[in-house]
């Protein structure tokens, strides 16, 4: 093939690829505006926001039961928040430890990374077995929570590791040489500089935990999280209210992303000038 043709051909291909990525979601979004009597497929009977109202419990009794998302949404948010805090703290501590060379760092690195590799269904099964044997009751804030951290802590660790790799150690040494203790140095110098990284690690952890499902399946106990509620609808017939839910939850995620973007901008944007100063000499 002519090389000059390659570029437009690949561009076209990439376009098709994006259509492949977005297509199902777009179709799902369209179908979420299905009329009350329509099913989860084409054709659209009539355009309406019926299924959104149905989702929020604003419709009269219908043939379709309401999606049980209210409480589970709150649980998922709380779980994601707890997971985020613990993973970011653990991730930052471990990454800080990795700045010192020590023996056995290789095995420890892989032990942590294993957390994001090992299939959720497997650790979920193991945790369920363990809680059975030990007689611990399974709950989203206990057995499921620790597994969520097992999953998100490696991500937070990798993000912080990358941040510390680019970190100029002499700034901390400068603080020490001014008579400032290591603890104060971390609080006043290290932490403010790595904060954008911490924010990214938090975003990672929150999203992963909020959407995590295979690790929760066997370990959440009686009270369901949001993904579990959705999974419950898989086995029965689906209705467009699930699509409406999909659209809303996506919008919620984007809100989160925007908040993150604004925070990032606030903490790095206004100081870009000062940060570039450090890199110019380094």
């Amino acid at each position: 093939m002519d090389v000059r043709m390659l570029r437009p051909a690949l561009a076209l291909y990439t376009g098709a690829f994006l259509a492949f990525l977005y297509g199902p979601m777009i179709v799902l979004a369209i179908l979420s505006f299905q009329g009350p009597n329509g099913g989860p497929q084409f054709p659209i009977q009539e355009w309406s926001t019926y299924w959104y109202r149905h989702l929020l419990g604003l419709t009269e009794t219908s043939r379709v039961s309401q999606l049980p998302v209210g409480d589970s949404l709150l649980r998922s948010l709380a779980l994601a928040f707890m997971t985020t805090v613990v993973s970011v703290v653990l991730g930052t501590m471990s990454a800080e430890a990795f700045r010192t060379r020590f023996r056995g760092s290789g095995p420890v690195f892989y032990l942590v990374i294993l957390g994001m590799m090992v299939p959720g269904v497997l650790v979920g099964l193991g945790m369920a077995l363990l809680s059975n044997v030990l007689g611990i009751e399974r709950a989203w804030w206990g057995t499921a929570f620790v597994l969520h951290v097992v999953y998100t802590y490696p991500f937070a660790f990798l993000v912080m590791l990358a941040i510390f790799n680019r970190f100029d150690r002499s700034v901390e040494e400068a603080s020490l040489s001014l008579g400032v203790s290591p603890a104060q140095t971390f609080r006043r110098v290290t932490f403010p500089i790595i904060f954008p990284g911490v924010l990214s690690a938090a975003l990672f952890s929150f999203t992963l935990s909020y959407d995590e499902f295979s690790r929760t399946l066997f370990t959440a106990g009686r009270d369901l999280t949001l993904p579990l509620s959705i999974y419950g609808t898989f086995s029965v017939e689906i209705y467009p209210n699930l699509f409406a839910f999909g659209v809303l939850t996506t919008l919620f995620s984007f809100t989160l992303l925007v908040i993150y973007g604004l925070l990032m901008k606030r903490f790095t944007g206004t100081r870009a000038g000062r940060f570039s100063g450090q890199e110019a000499v380094a």
């Binding site: 700034v171 040494e173 020490l176 040489s177 008579g179 110098v189 940060f275």
Partner: peptide, 21 residues
Amino acid sequence: QPPHRRDIGFVFQNFALFPHL
């Protein structure tokens, strides 16, 4: 003794200024 108890000034080659201040 730890560096912060030595009372010794250090001027770095790359200045090592605190970029966020």
